[in-house]
Amino acid sequence: MVEFQDVSVTYNSSGVDALNKVNLKINDGDFAFVVGPSGAGKSTLIKLVLKEIDATSGTVLVNGFNLKKLRRSKVPALRRTIGVVFQDFRLIPTMTVYENVAFVLRVIDAPAKYIRSRVPYVISLVGLSDKAKCYPTELSGGEQQRVALARALVNDPQLIIADEPTGNIDPALSYEIVELLKGINECGTTILMVTHEHDLVRYFGGRIININKGSIDFDEVVGGAHDEN
């Protein structure tokens, strides 16, 4: 669960008010699209959830953690409850697909036996079983993003956040990525996805949060074209 209470963010370096008294609640099991023009504050919202930055004022609650009170040393514990997918994939270039995914489980000290069975399973979910031994540079953008997805869901997080996960890949493949996210969501994981692609949002529908100049000016559930068929 993610909850924002009167959250404002001002970047010291630029003096920009990126978010302005934002109130937002995303319940467990929700699937929400975050849309809005460039510079509206979407990535800032994501950074807050990951505690990459702190709110200038207001309260951010994520998966039972109050981020204002969370000590530095507890940040890893928070991040282990969240899967993240970025526009630029962010895979570790010196590790194979398998190792990139397995790394998340090694971080949480998972038993070697569990890693050996869980990682191939998750890689097969994103359809990359035959590429498990490849390095990220040997994969297409769409494939890399699917590895990133596998990594995000391998430790079964409560929440997956995705900042423009389809931004760097072929539009046709974007649907595939969102389909995957929808599938994960149906198993109970909360999904928060930032996107610029209105076609995608129109097609899938669901909860749509529009941010404009640091404020939420639209937050409703909209039926998708996909559902009408």
């Binding site: 990951l50 040393s73 890893p76 514990a77 928070l78 991040r79 282990r80 993240v84 962010r90 895979l91 570790i92 270039p93 010196t94 790394f103 998340v104 971080v107 949480i108 990594r151």
Partner: peptide, 16 residues
């Protein structure tokens, strides 16, 4: 540093 950054995002501790 990117590699280190990614590790932090998936919840790795500094010691790790």
């Amino acid at each position: 540093r990117k590699e280190i950054n990614i590790m932090k995002y998936v919840g790795a501790t500094n010691a790790f």
